[in-house]
Protein backbone atom coordinates (compact mmCIF):
# COMPACT_ATOMS: atom_id res chain seq x y z
CA UNK A 1 0.00 0.00 0.00
CA UNK A 2 2.79 2.34 0.90
CA UNK A 3 4.58 1.37 -2.26
CA UNK A 4 1.66 2.67 -4.26
CA UNK A 5 2.25 6.01 -2.76
CA UNK A 6 5.74 6.10 -4.15
CA UNK A 7 6.09 9.43 -5.77
CA UNK A 8 8.61 12.06 -6.53
CA UNK A 9 8.51 13.15 -2.93
CA UNK A 10 12.04 12.88 -1.59
CA UNK A 11 11.35 13.99 1.92
CA UNK A 12 11.34 11.67 4.89
CA UNK A 13 8.17 12.12 6.88
CA UNK A 14 7.94 11.69 10.66
CA UNK A 15 4.57 10.88 12.19
CA UNK A 16 3.82 11.18 15.86
CA UNK A 17 2.27 7.86 16.77
CA UNK A 18 0.70 5.99 19.64
CA UNK A 19 2.26 2.70 18.53
CA UNK A 20 5.08 1.22 16.52
CA UNK A 21 3.34 0.42 13.26
CA UNK A 22 1.61 2.05 10.30
CA UNK A 23 -1.66 0.73 11.70
CA UNK A 24 -1.25 2.64 14.97
CA UNK A 25 -3.25 5.73 15.67
CA UNK A 26 -1.60 9.08 15.11
CA UNK A 27 -0.65 10.95 18.27
CA UNK A 28 -1.63 14.59 18.53
CA UNK A 29 1.23 15.30 20.90
CA UNK A 30 4.61 16.05 19.47
CA UNK A 31 7.02 15.96 22.41
CA UNK A 32 5.20 13.30 24.37
CA UNK A 33 4.09 10.88 21.70
CA UNK A 34 5.02 7.26 22.34
CA UNK A 35 6.59 6.63 18.93
CA UNK A 36 7.78 8.35 15.84
CA UNK A 37 7.15 6.53 12.60
CA UNK A 38 9.54 7.81 9.98
CA UNK A 39 8.50 7.00 6.46
CA UNK A 40 10.60 7.20 3.36
CA UNK A 41 8.01 7.56 0.59
CA UNK A 42 10.61 6.83 -2.07
CA UNK A 43 11.34 3.33 -0.89
CA UNK A 44 8.10 2.83 1.00
CA UNK A 45 10.06 1.75 4.05
CA UNK A 46 9.32 2.93 7.53
CA UNK A 47 11.15 2.99 10.82
CA UNK A 48 9.57 3.14 14.29
CA UNK A 49 11.50 4.99 16.99
CA UNK A 50 10.30 5.02 20.56
CA UNK A 51 10.27 8.49 22.04
CA UNK A 52 11.87 8.90 25.44
CA UNK A 53 10.13 12.24 25.82
CA UNK A 54 7.02 10.43 26.96
CA UNK A 55 8.49 10.14 30.46
CA UNK A 56 10.36 13.42 30.56
CA UNK A 57 9.23 15.94 33.09
CA UNK A 58 9.97 18.84 30.82
CA UNK A 59 11.92 19.59 27.71
CA UNK A 60 10.38 16.74 25.77
CA UNK A 61 9.56 18.88 22.72
CA UNK A 62 13.05 20.08 21.77
CA UNK A 63 14.47 16.63 22.50
CA UNK A 64 11.88 15.04 20.21
CA UNK A 65 12.84 17.52 17.49
CA UNK A 66 16.47 16.52 17.96
CA UNK A 67 15.54 12.85 17.75
CA UNK A 68 13.73 13.04 14.43
CA UNK A 69 16.40 15.36 13.05
CA UNK A 70 19.00 12.71 13.81
CA UNK A 71 16.85 10.18 12.01
CA UNK A 72 16.81 12.31 8.91
CA UNK A 73 13.22 13.56 8.93
CA UNK A 74 12.40 16.54 6.74
CA UNK A 75 8.80 16.99 7.75
CA UNK A 76 6.72 16.09 10.78
CA UNK A 77 3.01 15.28 10.69
CA UNK A 78 1.35 15.75 14.06
CA UNK A 79 -1.39 17.46 16.04
CA UNK A 80 0.39 20.25 17.79
CA UNK A 81 3.98 21.42 18.25
CA UNK A 82 5.03 23.60 21.21
CA UNK A 83 6.98 26.83 20.82
CA UNK A 84 10.36 25.55 21.90
CA UNK A 85 10.14 22.44 19.75
CA UNK A 86 9.04 24.58 16.82
CA UNK A 87 12.13 26.73 17.18
CA UNK A 88 14.39 23.70 17.00
CA UNK A 89 12.49 22.22 14.05
CA UNK A 90 12.82 25.47 12.15
CA UNK A 91 16.54 25.68 12.78
CA UNK A 92 17.06 22.25 11.26
CA UNK A 93 14.63 22.88 8.40
CA UNK A 94 12.03 20.31 9.35
CA UNK A 95 8.64 21.30 7.97
CA UNK A 96 5.71 21.15 10.36
CA UNK A 97 2.37 19.78 9.18
CA UNK A 98 0.20 20.19 12.25
CA UNK A 99 -3.51 20.04 12.96
CA UNK A 100 -3.84 16.30 12.33
CA UNK A 101 -6.29 14.50 14.59
CA UNK A 102 -5.53 11.46 16.69
CA UNK A 103 -8.48 9.47 15.38
CA UNK A 104 -6.76 8.34 12.17
CA UNK A 105 -4.12 5.72 11.55
CA UNK A 106 -0.59 6.65 10.61
CA UNK A 107 -1.01 5.12 7.15
CA UNK A 108 -4.10 7.24 6.54
CA UNK A 109 -2.32 10.32 7.74
CA UNK A 110 0.40 9.49 5.21
CA UNK A 111 -2.13 9.24 2.39
CA UNK A 112 -3.71 12.47 3.49
CA UNK A 113 -0.38 14.24 3.70
CA UNK A 114 0.83 13.04 0.31
CA UNK A 115 -2.43 14.02 -1.36
CA UNK A 116 -1.95 17.61 -0.34
Amino acid sequence: MIAELKNTNKEKIAFTSTGGSMESLLSEQFGRCQYFIIVDPETGKFEAISNLGEQMQSGAGPKAAELIHHHGANVVVTGHVGDKAEEVLKRVNIKIASGYKGNIKVKDALTEYLSK
Binding site: M56, S58, G59, A60, P62, K63, A65, E66, H69, H70, K84, V88, R91, V92
Partner: peptide, 18 residues
Protein backbone atom coordinates in the same frame (compact mmCIF):
# COMPACT_ATOMS: atom_id res chain seq x y z
CA UNK B 1 20.41 15.84 32.78
CA UNK B 2 17.91 18.58 32.13
CA UNK B 3 17.41 18.28 28.37
CA UNK B 4 18.62 21.81 27.92
CA UNK B 5 21.10 21.15 25.13
CA UNK B 6 20.07 20.10 21.66
CA UNK B 7 22.40 18.71 19.05
CA UNK B 8 21.48 20.25 15.71
CA UNK B 9 24.38 18.34 14.10
CA UNK B 10 25.95 21.50 12.73
CA UNK B 11 25.99 23.08 16.18
CA UNK B 12 24.73 22.71 19.73
CA UNK B 13 21.89 24.93 20.84
CA UNK B 14 20.76 25.73 24.36
CA UNK B 15 17.15 25.98 25.51
CA UNK B 16 17.76 28.69 28.10
CA UNK B 17 14.70 28.08 30.25
CA UNK B 18 15.49 24.40 30.70
Amino acid sequence: EFNALINLKFEITLIDEM
